[in-house]
Design a binder for these strands. Structure first.
Length: 634
RNA sequence: GGUCCCGUAGUUCAAUGGAUAGAAUAGAAGUUUCCUAAACUUUAGAUGCAAGUUCGAUUCUUGCCGGGACCA
């Protein structure tokens, strides 16, 4: 039981005894005492004032006295200021905590919750390499899974690969047209980048063809279009002529018309038509198309493997859209039978979510083909069959909030037993100072490039500092990777997942202050002391008065398990990141004020060595929950 | 048109309805015969606006302003 909980529990019992009312530990508002006041933990009394009709000062005094009487081993003093009851914890409590944990390799040995949790994350497309946005997703997903594991859950990590569809066909078409048999091997380009380049080439070609078509349309030549499209284009032309463009609303309407027009023209370009035909051929299982598809996806996977390995992403089970895209139609049939879904006159199937404050949502097209939500219904079923979970997390950007809400609602309406366990771990997009990353404008920050850049930076910084002269080249390279990825992961994880964040390529690569390398450096310092102490890892810890900074550090360290629990409950790695940072910060202050190896007495040296060991262990373990390694020296 | 999210130091981020709103960075001034200065210390600087609920609001409610996402 944590100290914080012990205090809450004792306070609740004290209140029960004093005032003979029902009171639970969770009803106590407890916080750390602000540094300007005497004490360690503070009970906020205002909440009790109304209920008990006593002044906060009197309540504080009565509860404080009662607590001192009943908890002599836990508390040594109290004071009441305004409505706050400040409590001082006995040094021996911290020393006992240190004694019990200083030599453990693993601090977080939480009891099993017996709960099964599935975490789906990463979910790449096979037509482009991984970028900065994916990195936030990967780091978050991996870390949340790790935190949930640490909190005692049975966790399985999954990934759904978007390996089919029109975008893949674009890469394939472009490769056929422009590659002349080139391969990643023959060009020396990483597979995912290689395939991505052909996707870009295809888009470029389509744009060019669209521009030519557009010019012909402007000149009144509609011959490239089907009758239906011709009619639509003329309609759009008439529509735009009727809008003046004077007001903001009008401008928006014009923009929309222009987009619709572009879309019609794009779809009519020869290359787009070829891609569409290829998709049809793929679905029909045409052998040469399937073979090309397999070959190119294979290149992409080779590239992904390298990146995933480097950034530390891994999965227990992979799902491929090519295998799941036909699923879900059965769920639609069931929904129709149950009267939850309805069929419109044109044959398309919908669900009415207006009662839930949403719209009507299409779940099956009139030609009977799936939309995204259809396959997601099917995949949810598949996942539950494979791993009957209590909770299923989807780590997906917040632009999909609506989609995920609808998915959960439909499954709930269908009465699926797993529906309530579906949780959308929605995270904000990573933006650049100039705004959202756009592949069309070439502002996407590539993951491989970014990691390489950071490794170079880490190498530069390390050679300046140079505490690792005896390292071999291999050890050095490993250290650079550790520091670079530590900086990157910490940067992306320290922010509340729900919030959007800004990544400034120039400024965000920082190794000072609230960063991963700061914490790694602190760990290396700790380890340096422990090496020099040449101890056997066993220390004799005697009772005595703690220095304020020792106490402050122990107070934080003691909260470790509570922090993991609450980070798990909130699915929030940022809580761990902030917590570990505060430990490193306090430790560094302690480090400059007090010497460990040259402590005033042998007793203090022993205690401080144990404290160093515990601090190092918790930093290491906490950082491992974020997927960040900490070096022994740097 | 509808739904949802976000506005905190110059900048990037914190703050279960609780005390004088914390950090980092950029700025200013310092610390190294002593365990790793990627560190430490000092200093200056912020809750978009207006109401409401409350003993107490960055947090909850409403309106406005500004930014973003999604649905049709």
């Amino acid at each position: 039981m944590s100290l914080a909980y012990k205090i809450k529990d004792a306070a609740a019992r004290a209140i029960k005894e004093l005032y003979t009312i029902e009171f639970r530990a969770d009803d106590i508002t407890l916080s750390e005492t602000k540094p300007e006041f005497e004490g360690d933990y503070t009970i906020v009394l205002f909440t009790l004032v109304k209920q008990l009709r006593k002044s906060p000062e009197l309540l504080g005094k009565e509860i404080g006295e009662q607590l001192l009487r009943t908890q002599p081993g836990l508390l040594t003093a109290y004071n009441v200021i305004k409505g706050f009851l400040n409590l001082s914890i006995a040094d021996t409590c911290f020393i006992n905590f240190l004694r019990e944990n200083s030599t453990k390799a693993i601090i977080g040995d939480m009891a099993s919750t017996g709960k099964k949790v599935m975490v789906e994350y990463s979910s790449p497309n096979t037509n482009k390499p991984i970028h900065l946005g994916h990195l936030r997703n990967n780091f978050l997903g991996w870390s949340v899974a790790q935190i949930l594991k640490a909190a005692g859950n049975d966790v399985i990590k999954t990934c759904i690969v978007n390996d089919r569809g029109i975008h893949i066909c674009k890469s394939m078409i472009a490769w056929e047209l422009f590659a002349h048999g080139a391969t990643p091997e023959s060009t020396g380009i990483k597979g995912d980048h290689f395939v991505g380049e052909y996707y870009v080439k295809c888009e470029g070609q389509i744009r060019q063809e669209a521009a030519e078509l557009s010019a012909r349309v402007d000149g009144g030549d509609y011959t490239a279009f089907s009758d239906e499209d011709q009619e639509k284009l003329r309609e759009l032309r008439d529509l735009s002529g009727s809008v003046t463009g004077a007001t903001d609303k009008d401008k928006e309407r014009l923009k929309k018309i222009e987009e619709d027009r572009k879309e019609v023209i794009r779809a009519a370009t020869p290359l787009m038509k070829r891609a569409q035909q290829m998709l049809v051929d793929w679905e029909a299982g045409k052998p040469e198309v399937i073979e090309l598809w397999k070959k190119m996806n294979g290149w992409v996977y080779e590239g992904f493997d390298v990146t995933y390995k480097r950034i530390g992403s891994d999965f227990d089970k992979m799902y491929y859209e090519s295998e799941t895209y036909l699923l879900g139609k059965q769920s639609v049939e069931e929904g129709l039978a149950k009267g939850i879904l309805f069929r419109k006159d044109d044959g398309s199937v919908w669900i009415d979510l207006t009662a839930e404050g949403l719209d009507e949502k299409l779940v099956l097209r009139r030609d009977g083909t799936s939309v995204y939500i259809t396959q997601d219904l099917g995949l949810a079923e598949e996942k539950y069959k494979a791993f009957p979970y209590d909770k299923s997390l989807y780590v997906i950007a917040d632009e999909q909030n609506y989609h995920m809400k609808v998915l959960k609602l439909i499954l709930q309406k269908l009465g699926m037993p797993y529906a309530d366990g579906i949780i959308h771990l929605s995270y904000g997009m990573v933006e650049l100072p100039s705004g959202r990353m756009k592949s069309r404008e070439g502002t996407v920050v590539d993951a491989d490039d970014l990691v390489n850049e950071m490794v170079n930076e880490a190498a530069k910084k390390t050679s300046e500092k140079s505490k690792v002269d005896e390292f071999s080249e291999g050890e050095l390279n490993e250290l650079y990777e550790t520091i670079a990825l530590g900086a990157l992961k910490f940067f992306l994880l320290k922010v509340d997942p729900k919030k959007r964040m800004v990544f400034n390529p120039e400024e965000s690569i920082d190794f000072h202050g609230f960063t991963g390398p700061f914490i790694q450096y602190t760990h290396a310092r700790l380890k340096s002391i422990l090496r020099k102490a040449e101890s056997n890892g066993q220390w004799t810890i005697s009772n005595g008065k703690l220095e304020p900074l020792e106490k402050e550090l122990l107070l934080l360290l003691e909260q470790y398990k509570d922090m993991v629990q609450s980070a798990a409950a909130d699915y929030n790695p940022a809580a761990i990141a902030n917590y570990i940072y505060s430990i490193a910060k306090v430790y560094n202050s302690f480090y400059t004020v007090h010497s460990v190896l040259k402590a005033e007495t042998e007793e203090k040296k022993q205690l401080r060595l144990a404290l160093c060991n515990l601090t190092a262990n918790i930093i290491k373990e906490g950082m491992s929950l974020l997927g960040i390694k900490v070096p022994e020296r740097m």
